[in-house]
Nucleic acid binder design. Structure first.
Lengths: 201, 201, 201, 201
DNA sequence: AATGAATGAGACTTCATTCAT
DNA sequence: TATGAATGAAGTCTCATTCAT
């Protein structure tokens, strides 16, 4: 009984979140009205508020989903348990994220960037961002350690190197979305190559 | 006469923009009301609208100021006309930006990140962002070319290398603001060192 | 069979009314939501609406219960068939009401006052109030007549005297609830004494 | 400058409060919407909220006005400085209140009763009610003392006697409004006579 | 008889902007 | 230029009630 209810609940939340996601990506959190989300979700106002306490709640859930994706992608890499160069790892991770982005109709990157911006004003989103950042640092630290253990010395502390790699990924997203840069396999290949150069002694 | 009037106009605009800047940095563009800006500026509602057509105008002007700062800092480096390593250049540039950030009471980084996010929804800000991005790419391309000309081969096209350096800078800002990372000279030294490793053949 | 069903029905109504009563007393009719009543009653929304057609119905039933209590208390006095002075009668009646108030967890007086206020806007409650007022006037008229018949001349028409006694009781409730006056046996004794003085020639 | 502004402000508040007053009296606080008040006031939504922070604010101001009126009427009596019997004083006071009631289009009594009811749920209104109750007790205590000083012994402590007189007045209002009793000079004359009997030794 | 997820009208309030002075 | 009271569209959210199961 409970499981059915929980399933249903999760399904409805997903239905609403998905509608919100697209609108947030296209128009920004604050240029999207609840009325738009309600219409797009195909539910009534009351129903939406049954699953999300407030618009802020919906923003937080959206930000969480976006911020968690990078950690998820890195986790997949770790789970694969195959030693790869940092550059290759980055390329795989960006590839996975790009895939998410496309399957979300181009909504993923814009939402992520807005989540970073929302952290400025929302303590809840800020905390979420820091949590996932710590997790991502851990993921990359682990990836780099494995690389080092297979005979490739790092140019510095794993944590510092991880920060640098993550910075490149973040900057890449910004260039893609805010600066209008296109996806470009050639550049990604160069990037992968140089990332390895950056972290290697 | 006209010049005096223009000076006055510019002064008033600056007064308003400065009030808006702090509020935008603290609360975000969309959690800041015109009433707050009006109060903080010490002017009347009518006066503020005499110098800025709309809130959107004020956001655009703010975003422009933030997005232009990086280009300004890179320009200073170029003007100095002193060949520096890419890592050193990055450190100088981040130092200059940090200085701006501090003299603005910690308002610079948050505004910059929000400007990136606003580019998602505002064509005007998007265009501004792309314009300054192109300028920044030019600046860094030039810096790297000079470096190459003083006998330090690059690991790829100057433009690609510039993109990578800029990505690191952007990611660094995000980590500082959205993820709560502190200013850390040691890490910056490591970063400078590895940036050079990244772009060098 | 029908009787069993009716019992069950009455029991359920009581269960709901009791939950509503407490909430109404604490938060007022219009600051109490059906959701609160539904939760407090331990039933489902559908079930509550099976026993009360609407929230208005629930308010009316609550008001009726409160407004009827005074008539009930006066009726007990009449039934006792013992000649008492008006002051003594008032004290007995207030004592009985106080007892109801306490056994209802302090909910009785606030509900009564709100019922009077609701009569302002609800014709149904207004009619109920007038019906019970007439009944109460009758009760007190009878009480005072009996007193007169045992050799204590009244200072005016029984009905006028009854109105005055009832006014004192109503004012007393308001002072207790709206003005925060405490229960005070000494004052009640004075009151009883002076009530008799008021209605006696 | 300031005085003009304050005058204007007070005038606007009065304009809004007056519109609210009538609607509150007719439909009750919680069956009156802000939209109705806005329309009736002849102002815009924004303007109304410029003068009252919230609907609650408007309710509190209304309650204050109603609760203060009795104190005002008693104050006039005291100021007249003419020794009158308690019954006569009550009649004068009720007459004054009746006058207010009529000049307010029959709105005064219903608002007063609703204010008493609101005290049940609103701490602010409760505090206001207690404040004015204390003031009214003081007024009547003084009136009764003066009566005693002109050679008419009281039947108890002035404060107790004052409570009783006030209770009668409150009950009278309830009978007028909630129970549908009409204004009746004959009854008022009896009431005045018996009030004096009640408080006199 | 009972459930509780869903409905949607309507409530309160904000806020960017204007305009008479 | 400058003021600031006024505007009113639009926003978020609540809640009494229903109905398929």
């Amino acid at each position: 009984m409970l499981k059915v209810t929980d399933d249903h609940r999760e399904q409805r939340r997903e239905q609403i979140l998905s509608a919100a996601w697209d609108l947030f990506a296209a128009n920004g959190f604050h240029n999207t009205s609840m009325a738009q989300i309600i219409t797009a979700s195909g539910l009534s106002a009351g129903a939406v508020y049954l699953y999300f306490r407030s618009k802020e709640d919906l923003i937080v859930a959206t930000a969480e989903k976006a911020l968690g994706a990078a950690h998820g992608a890195a986790g997949e890499l770790l789970a694969a348990n195959r030693p790869v160069s940092p550059g290759e790892a980055m390329r795989l991770m960006l590839g996975r994220i790009e895939q998410l982005h496309r399957s979300a109709g181009g909504a993923f990157f814009p939402v992520a960037i807005q989540a970073w911006a929302e952290a400025v004003r929302s303590p809840v989103i800020s905390a979420t961002a820091q949590r996932f950042y710590a997790a991502l640092l851990g993921d990359w630290g682990e990836l780099l350690l494995r690389w080092q253990e297979t005979g490739h010395p790092l140019a510095g502390r794993p944590n510092d190197m991880a920060r640098m790699v993550i910075a490149v990924i973040q900057g890449y997203l910004i260039q893609r979305v805010s600066f209008g840069a296109e996806h470009d396999d050639r550049f990604l290949a160069v990037l992968a190559d140089r990332i390895t150069g950056m972290v290697s002694a």
